[in-house]
Design a protein around this nucleic acid. Sequence first.
DNA 1: CTTGACCTTCCAGTCGCTGGAATCCCTATC
DNA 2: GATAGGGATTCCAGCGACTGGAAGGTCAAG
Lengths: 133, 133
Amino acid sequence: MNIGSAAERSGLPPKTIRYYEEIGLIPAAGRTEGGYRDYDETDVQILRFLRGARGLGFSVSECRELLSLYRDRDRASADVKAIALQRIGDIERKILELQSMRKTLKTLAERCHGDDRPDCPILEDLAAATPTD
Amino acid sequence: MNIGSAAERSGLPPKTIRYYEEIGLIPAAGRTEGGYRDYDETDVQILRFLRGARGLGFSVSECRELLSLYRDRDRASADVKAIALQRIGDIERKILELQSMRKTLKTLAERCHGDDRPDCPILEDLAAATPTD
DNA sequence: CTTGACCTTCCAGTCGCTGGAATCCCTATC
DNA sequence: GATAGGGATTCCAGCGACTGGAAGGTCAAG
């Protein structure tokens, strides 16, 4: 099947599939006589795997690790779990950061009357910011 | 004061300050005879403002808007508030997305025994992913 | 035989910096 | 006055993970 069908069946855009090939995340696809990339079900499976992993926020290099574990029949599930737990930690840190931003913004937005007058605690607060690092 | 002091007093790295100048986020700084950029307290104030806004996750183009509102004495606070509310919306969407990822990953990680055996629900689940879009 | 949808490669751009190289300025010490 | 260092300057390249677009090749239908 050509790259368009593989894209449709995997949920990844053709451009992304070519990009993954270029960076060596997936092996170079076979070619038809006319020079078109040719994919089979196994390839699509790998592409879907990547789409799922990327969708869970794993970086491309984490995907590389996950993929090599996926292909390794002698893998230890502990290695996979470690990557997943790491990712959960990243996500939780990010959530905390976003929640803190939201809290600050909400407080400021609540205090801003939001009409046509110019005085605004949001701007005032930003202007008063001190370098805390 | 030179860029190093402005950096210290604003909390932004010198490279970032030059970058902001380059992209026109801040006006070009004055220069000393020797060609060094020269900053005063007002400049540092603006840099701090930017650091605060970026720290709350506003994009550079949002910062541009916020800065122009900040400088506009005839602004309507409603315009500022609208940007802030928009940003809160972005943050909340992002939090929901991350929470969903975390939930999926947690479920998978819990079901993975994480020892030296190869069978692993994390990999199995990724491999079974279907294009849902 | 032509049309149009697909494919190919390659180059550039996105966002917000960050690193590094080569060179210049300023101050302090010998 | 020479020199050493710690700044500053510019410019170019790279990060991550694509995405857009141009110029051209291929394929199936009419």
